[in-house]
Nucleic acid binder design. Structure first.
Length: 324
DNA sequence: CATCAGGGCCCTG
DNA sequence: CAGGGCCCTGAT
């Protein structure tokens, strides 16, 4: 519990993302739930990445204000091999969609009344997720049926007990436990962390990873959105809400929007129609017509821009929908 | 103090 | 396919 590891700098690699690209838009998501798994500080992102059963510290930065290169500094207890470096680089490229092709979207909608400003500020932003599939599902599990505050509390309790604290570059972030670690933990012990019925889901999801019934590798190799969706829905404790986040953020389907949760529905409704009451069904139809194959990316640009603005100015109707 | 719904999902009818 | 129940907490 509260296993701590001090890591030292071992290597820096660089990748060149496809254009157009926005570093901050891609690596910092104001709308994402805050956790000790990721730290964005002074234009740099700190997180753990697990490769070959080991957790490495990773620091990601834009190499210079105008260069489009992304630097990845890797921290570890001892020197690392080229294959580890490659694997971590690949993981960053995949999780942050650095090889994605969104040029068509920017071209087509830079004049769109709702997208012009977000594109001006964030043009080149990618849908991205800091976590592995397993990590994402753990987060999604504590997000269920809870307010953000309680979610943070549950995640902190879990990380304190089962996570690995990594110290590198003068910062601290946690690496999530592995599915195998969770196999050794009893449901009762988990429940003692006050996470309620979610204990069962965590156990079952972990087990399906250990038995290879679920494999991130395999899912990533699938081409069709529908196939991935069906495979994800088979996982116990994973429903339409988590899957729709995953299809967009982790699997980068820019049109992955056929489901709107009530709280998101209200926010999108307000942005599109100036009221909170338009039905999700109507919204989905209009969004399809307006942005077609880019519809979820469009919503993401508008959404992140809104959350970013929230830091600058007070948006009362939004505060009502975000219960911290 | 009691009641209730929450940034879902499963299960039942 | 609609709706109750789930753990626990903070808001009322």
């Amino acid at each position: 519990m509260d296993e701590v590891k001090q890591l030292a700098k071992q290597a820096t690699v660089y990748v060149v993302p496809t254009k157009p690209f926005s570093f901050e838009g891609t690596f910092f998501k104001p709308s994402h739930f805050p956790s000790k798994l990721v730290l964005y500080d002074n234009g740099r992102l700190y997180q753990a990445i697990e490769v070959g059963g080991h957790a490495f510290g990773v620091e990601i930065f834009g190499s210079s204000p105008n260069s489009q290169k992304v630097g990845i500094t890797i921290y570890a207890p001892k020197a690392i091999s080229d294959s580890i470096k490659k694997a971590i680089e690949r993981e960053v490229v995949t999780r942050y969609d650095l090889a994605g092709d969104i040029g068509g979207f920017i071209e087509e909608y830079r004049g769109d009344s709702l997208l012009a400003e977000p594109i001006q500020r964030w043009g080149g932003m990618r849908p991205s997720v800091a976590y592995s599939l397993y990590g994402f599902l753990m987060v999604a599990t504590v997000l269920q049926n809870a307010t953000v505050k309680r979610t943070v509390q549950m995640m902190d309790a879990l990380l304190k007990q089962y996570g690995k604290k990594l110290i590198f570059a003068g910062r601290e972030v946690y690496a999530i436990w592995s599915p195998e670690d969770m196999e050794k933990v009893s449901e009762t012990d988990l429940r003692d962390l006050r996470i309620g019925y979610r204990a069962k889901n965590i156990k079952r999801i972990s087990h399906s990873f250990v038995t290879k019934q679920v494999s991130e590798e395999l899912l990533r190799s699938m081409r069709r959105k529908q196939d991935i969706k069906e495979a994800l829905l088979e996982i116990y404790g994973v429903g339409p809400q988590s899957v729709s986040y995953l299809l967009f953020e982790a699997f980068h389907f820019y049109d992955a929007l056929d489901h709107l949760s009530p709280w998101e529905g209200k926010i999108v409704s307000m942005l599109l129609y100036g009221n909170k009451t338009t039905s999700p069904k109507r919204i989905l139809k209009d969004v399809e017509k307006r942005w077609g194959k880019w519809k979820m990316l469009a919503i993401h640009y508008i959404f992140e821009d809104l959350f970013w603005r929230r830091k600058e100015e007070c948006i009362p109707w939004l505060e009502e929908e975000i219960r911290m």
